[in-house]
């Protein structure tokens, strides 16, 4: 597997907001979900990858070329779907396609037509006249068929209806199987994260919490159902949070050993849902 994107020690300060230091490597064949609270700097990070925002420190390399360097060839290797689409208003889908498609050597007309058909996108209507959901669909139909090695999606489905969201997941899964591709997707949709991601890159208020392989993350969290309600008031090793008779740990083995040593009995332990793990990661101060 080839390392497609390589981010090292990336930092950026915007007014009072500090983003980074960020380290992230994306390999071909993988999907990374960029997860974070509102205002955590997800879009800023994606814009830095696109050289739209300049870093204060650190490097971003796409296929071994610095994106903030003088070379511009890397741009053909990445297809970026921004969260807010600016500058498309005056054009219709057909005109936009005429502008965009010749810029990418691997553009797939077939995939474009499939997506237009699948999402029922009117190509002769001006972009400004489309509903927000339809704008997102057109945006995606003009982004995914670029067939660039790296696809960056910034909240692609926030305005889309439930069936369309499902269709998009299928389109992306198919697309991943069509070649050496990788996706970096910022999303608040649990379905997207569960069904698509291999890795979760978690940001909280600009700070990098970590880049986790999905199962490594879910397997590292366990919920213990305790018999005794009287627990030591100090933090139990591995403890993340406790409610009454439940204890959530991210080091289940350590926690289990401690409970055994202290003679605290538990009736059961179970897995923690990914959604809850993300919530716990994004609220570090509970």
């Amino acid at each position: 597997m080839q390392s497609l994107l390589n981010i090292t020690h990336l930092q950026k300060k915007i007014d009072d907001f500090q983003l980074g230091p960020i380290n992230l490597t994306i390999e071909s064949g993988t999907i990374t979900a960029l997860v974070g609270n509102n205002g955590s700097g997800k879009s800023t990070l994606l814009k830095m990858i696109m050289n739209l925002v300049k870093p204060d420190q650190g490097n971003i390399k796409l296929l071994d070329q610095f994106v903030h360097g003088p070379g511009e060839d890397w741009k053909q290797s990445v297809a970026y779907q921004p969260q807010t689409i600016i500058g498309w208003d005056a054009f219709n889908g057909k005109q936009l396609k005429e502008l965009i498609s010749p810029l990418y050597p691997n553009w797939s007309e077939e995939l474009f037509e499939n997506m237009v058909h699948l999402f029922d996108i009117p190509l002769n209507k001006k972009f400004s006249k489309l509903s927000q959901g339809m704008q997102q669909k057109l945006n995606l139909a003009l982004t995914i068929p670029r067939n660039a090695p790296l696809l960056i999606l910034d909240e692609p489905t926030s305005f889309m209806d439930i069936p369309s969201k499902k269709l998009l997941i299928d389109v992306l899964v198919d697309w991943m199987d069509q070649g050496e591709h990788a996706i970096l997707i910022a999303s608040h949709q649990v379905e997207d994260i569960k069904k698509l991601s291999d890795y979760l890159f978690v940001l909280h208020d600009g700070e990098m919490i970590g880049n986790y392989e999905k199962e490594a993350l879910t397997e590292s969290y366990k919920r213990f159902w305790l018999k005794d309600t009287v627990l030591p008031s100090s933090k139990i090793p591995g403890e993340i949070v406790r409610y009454n008779q439940q204890l959530i740990s991210n080091q289940p083995d350590v926690t289990q050993q401690f409970l055994q040593e202290q003679g605290i009995q538990w009736t059961d332990h179970s897995a923690v849902e990914l959604e809850e793990i993300i919530s716990l990661l994004l609220t570090p101060n509970i």
């Binding site: 696109m50 511009e72 741009k75 970026y80 921004p82 600016i86 500058g87 208003d89 965009i100 810029l103």
Partner: peptide
């Protein structure tokens, strides 16, 4: 496009694409 950011929307759109500076 922001209260303190003025730019040509077309230029911004084209900056997202592989077009040489």
């Amino acid at each position: 496009i922001q209260p303190n950011f003025i730019v040509s929307p077309i230029l911004l759109m084209q900056k997202h694409l592989p077009i040489k500076e």
